[in-house]
């Protein structure tokens, strides 16, 4: 029963991490750029939700679209400022430009909302549900459902719509996409907007139960990076799986081992996985570059 309880919490946390990793991997696929600001964008989303809440006294689920919309706009700005000027430059320069964006976000947040931890409203209610003796925070259940819906909706857009096909084509080969008449720049902007909206959603989901401070992004980018690489660089299902693995270590394994030991075990497992599968869990084996 306890294990089940922990599993539920682990999956809820993993679902939120998955949204963080998803935003990261979308931008990665579309631009081959590592967005180091992703963690800080999650933080910004959380603080935005916390700041909007007193003015829009509605449940989090209604706040979610507003937060995602504002964050999508922020994503466009990040893309225009930190990616587009560097798109034909060495990829490492985008590392640095997004690190700079992270610094700006973190310190901008401290200036605007102060250093205090903040809490965003719950999606539906802050109570708990009892399901067969299992105490499930309403918010945990809601996180799993909302994250699953968002991830599913995204997969649907990518797989079934003209817009999604264009996004995928851009991600696979921007030059070819351009030759086919796809507006590549617009697609890249759209990807940043979607990826940042994901970050915003994750921020809102995390900031209710786990609070948010201007410095909480640094930890999340590490987790997103680990999830995406562990799952297989560029693989969307891999990123989701990687996020779940991390959360299960944090919540389930740490119930057996102590928290620091569980973290060490996570990293040791990571190294072991890389020794056995150098291409990550869902990655394709490295092929010879032409």
């Amino acid at each position: 029963m306890t294990l089940l309880q922990l599993l539920v919490n682990g999956v809820a946390l993993g679902a939120a991490y998955a949204l963080v990793a998803l935003g990261f991997v979308l931008v990665l696929n579309a631009t081959a750029a590592v967005n180091f600001a992703q963690g800080d964008l999650v933080m910004a989303g959380g603080l935005l939700a916390a700041a909007l809440a007193p003015h829009l006294p509605v449940p989090g689920i209604l706040l979610l679209p507003a937060v995602m919309a504002v964050m999508a706009g922020l994503g466009l700005a990040v893309c225009a400022a930190a990616y587009l000027p560097l798109r034909h430059r060495p990829p490492v320069s985008v590392f640095i430009s997004t690190i700079a964006v992270g610094i700006i976000l973190q310190n901008g947040a401290t200036l605007l909302s102060g250093p205090e931890p903040k809490s965003a409203p719950p999606l539906f209610g802050g109570g708990t549900l009892e399901i067969g003796g299992l105490v499930v925070a309403e918010q945990s259940a809601a996180i799993v459902v909302v994250a699953a819906l968002l991830i599913g909706a995204q997969q649907w857009v990518f797989a079934r719509t003209q817009f999604g096909r264009r996004l995928r084509a851009t991600a696979q080969d921007p030059e070819m996409a351009r030759a086919c008449g796809i507006p590549v720049t617009a697609m890249v902007l759209a990807t940043f907007a979607i990826g940042t909206a994901c970050a915003g959603a994750a921020g809102l989901l995390l900031a209710n139960q786990f609070f948010v401070t201007p410095t909480s992004g640094g930890d999340l980018i590490l987790k997103a990076y680990i999830a995406v690489t562990l799952g297989g660089w560029g693989s969307v299902p891999g990123a989701v799986a990687g996020a779940l693995v991390i959360a299960l270590f944090e919540v389930v394994v740490s119930a057996v081992l102590s928290y620091p030991v569980a973290l060490a075990a996570l990293y040791a497992t990571l190294l072991a996985v890389l020794v056995v599968r150098p291409q990550g869990l869902f990655g394709e084996a490295a092929r010879r570059r032409a």
């Binding site: 930190a82 000027p85 430009s97 700079a100 610094i103 700006i104 901008g108 401290t110 200036l111």
Partner: peptide
Amino acid sequence: RGYLLVYGAALLLTIV
């Protein structure tokens, strides 16, 4: 308190 904000902006400008 704003110095790191400006630092971030300067870093961004430099790399661009």
